[in-house]
Computed example of a mutant assay.
Amino acid sequence: MGRIRACRICRDAPRGAKLPHEPRPILRVSSSARLLIASQAPGVRVHLSGLPFDDASGDRLRQWMDVSREVFYDETRIAIAPMGFCFPGHTAQKGDLPPRSECRAAWHDELFRALPKIECILAIGRYAQDYHFARLGGPLPKAARVDEIVRRPPEFSGESPKIIALPHPSWRNSGWLKQNLWFETEVLPKLRESVAKLIG
């Protein structure tokens, strides 16, 4: 994984605009991990700390999973690999830009072949969902909404590894969570059961 951490493609040979700051690829992986958190891209706070989900989104995700920080950051059990390894920068409206496409093209297929023991993928957000469902042979319909993907994943996913689709745990999704109360009653118990089996 040292090659990924040393990657400077977005600075030296970008597809389009150059990354607006020095690259800092962030991931935590081990060949022994059985659970993969496939997220979108680091935010600015994670870019500064170098620790994925070291923010309020991470607090909410750990609560969803019912795991401690210690367990969450044990990369021998839980791998964390975003679709974009570096913070992509901000839009004019101060939101985060989408994950950079260079990471997917240069690294992702190779990376996930190097994680042979993954039995379950927590696919957070549409970028990760599109990539992992397609990679495992079940591409998502372009018109599928977040609530459809999260609530009815068996329609889209294969058997191994299992994919659990999740909305992003950002505070920006608090409204979605309030409008979709089934997420807490239907999805979280199954998520916690799966996580407990894999890290136990």
Results as ranks from 00 to 15, higher is better:
160 S>Y: 11
36 L>C: 04
26 I>Y: 06
73 Y>V: 06
190 K>V: 15
191 L>A: 04
186 E>C: 07
125 G>H: 07
50 G>I: 04
184 E>C: 01
60 R>H: 09
83 M>Y: 08
64 W>V: 02
24 R>D: 05
106 A>D: 15
189 P>Y: 02
5 R>V: 01
21 H>M: 13
23 P>R: 09
25 P>D: 10
148 E>R: 04
85 F>T: 11
128 A>R: 06
169 P>N: 05
122 L>E: 02
60 R>Y: 05
159 E>A: 13
41 A>L: 05
125 G>T: 05
103 C>S: 15
191 L>E: 02
17 A>P: 12
73 Y>S: 04
18 K>C: 12
13 A>R: 11
134 A>H: 13
144 A>S: 06
19 L>A: 09
6 A>K: 11
126 R>M: 14
65 M>W: 02
98 P>L: 01
145 R>N: 00
114 A>R: 10
141 P>R: 09
5 R>D: 00
165 A>K: 08
169 P>A: 10
1 M>C: 12
176 W>Q: 00
15 R>Q: 12
192 R>W: 08
3 R>G: 11
127 Y>M: 03
186 E>Q: 13
101 S>H: 10
133 F>T: 06
22 E>M: 06
145 R>H: 07
108 H>F: 06
89 G>K: 11
30 S>C: 08
161 P>I: 05
34 R>E: 12
55 D>G: 06
56 A>Q: 11
188 L>F: 07
195 V>G: 01
37 I>E: 01
162 K>E: 15
187 V>D: 03
160 S>E: 14
178 K>I: 04
36 L>D: 02
182 W>R: 08
169 P>Y: 01
49 S>M: 11
158 G>Q: 05
192 R>F: 04
180 N>H: 14
179 Q>C: 06
54 D>P: 07
192 R>K: 11
27 L>K: 05
100 R>F: 05
89 G>H: 12
30 S>D: 12
167 P>I: 09
40 Q>S: 14
151 R>W: 01
31 S>T: 13
51 L>N: 11
39 S>V: 03
124 I>D: 01
81 A>R: 00
116 P>C: 10
62 R>M: 15
84 G>Y: 06
128 A>Y: 06
153 P>F: 03
12 D>A: 13
82 P>V: 02
69 R>K: 13
155 E>S: 09
11 R>T: 13
93 Q>P: 04
126 R>I: 15
99 P>K: 08
110 E>D: 13
140 L>Y: 00
191 L>Q: 05
128 A>C: 07
139 P>C: 09
142 K>T: 14
116 P>T: 07
39 S>A: 15
56 A>R: 11
168 H>C: 13
73 Y>Q: 05
189 P>F: 07
150 V>Y: 00
44 V>L: 15
171 W>Q: 09
166 L>M: 13
84 G>F: 03
138 G>E: 05
8 R>H: 10
57 S>R: 00
63 Q>F: 12
181 L>R: 13
17 A>H: 10
180 N>L: 01
